[in-house]
């Protein structure tokens, strides 16, 4: 008990800032790529910034961007966000049990906006509950890093010549490849999820009778079929799931 309290007391604002700094630096590059992508799709820089400051999620924002760029419906938009961001629901359940008593109801309402894969990974791995000061310190760098990177990427995308923006257009996708490949090598279930998800998405895109399906819906269909199949064939036991943030 004594030891646990000492550990908990070390989780102050400063420690939070320190833990959040590397996440913030990482977010700079990902959101830069997102900003460039938004600029290529014709979204004004202030709108990209607005999106990053209100959403704080990479895959969800790219999906939203795609729906906006293809003039999709609001229902398509909402459906993509629900499926793509459903994982935060699971993370939020785990985190709700790691907040100490210093969090009021209002602060829980506020803090839940900052649940991302990386913030989840670092907080879920803490051996004790933590207070709000630690959490506030933790989210500052990631939040502003995400916003700043988006702004810089969007401005760069507007200013740079086409030869450079074309090359930068692959950046965000390359990062997604970097996220999905290593766990696919390690874990059969993930490999099948990745191959099925990408495979079905390609099939829907290239087979003429399916080509009228909007992009956002196609991503949902592909991902849900792949994930349902994998959950059925490769169920994860309790302790294996969770505390390892990936995106």
């Amino acid at each position: 008990m004594q030891k646990e309290n000492t550990l908990k007391n070390q989780l102050n604002f400063k420690r939070g800032l320190k833990d959040g700094l590397p996440i913030g630096l990482g977010y700079l590059s990902v959101s830069f790529a997102f900003g460039v992508q938004a600029s290529i799709l014709g979204v004004p820089f202030f709108m990209s910034l607005f999106m990053s400051m209100t959403n704080l999620t990479s895959a969800g924002q790219l999906a939203g961007l795609t729906v906006i760029a293809t003039l999709g419906t609001i229902l398509e938009l909402i459906a993509t966000q629900v499926v793509i961001n459903a994982r935060y629901f699971l993370m939020s359940i785990t985190l709700s049990q790691k907040l100490d008593k210093s969090f009021t109801f209002g602060q829980r309402l506020f803090c839940s906006a900052f649940i991302t894969d990386e913030i989840f990974a670092i907080t879920a791995a803490k051996p004790t509950v933590f207070g709000k000061k630690y959490f506030y310190g933790l989210v500052i760098c990631p939040y502003f890093g995400w916003a700043l990177g988006t702004l810089l990427g969007a401005l760069a995308g507007d200013a740079l010549p086409a030869s450079v923006t074309n090359a930068l257009g692959i950046a965000l996708y390359a990062m997604f490849v970097a996220i999905i490949v290593p766990p696919s090598i390690k874990e059969k279930g993930v490999l099948v999820a990745v191959l099925l998800g990408g495979g079905i998405s390609c099939a829907l895109y290239f087979i003429p009778i399916f080509s009228s399906i909007p992009t956002g819906i196609s991503v949902i269909i592909s991902a849900l079929i792949a994930a349902c199949a994998c959950a059925f064939i490769f169920p994860k036991k309790e302790e294996e799931v969770s505390d390892d943030g990936t995106l």
């Binding site: 895959a59 999906a63 699971l90 998800g197 990408g198 991902a223 849900l224 490769f234 799931v241 995106l247």
Partner: peptide
């Protein structure tokens, strides 16, 4: 919920 992110990113 564990597999969805990987499947989503791949499909995107």
């Amino acid at each position: 919920l564990y597999y969805v992110p990987y499947a989503v990113l791949s499909a995107m």
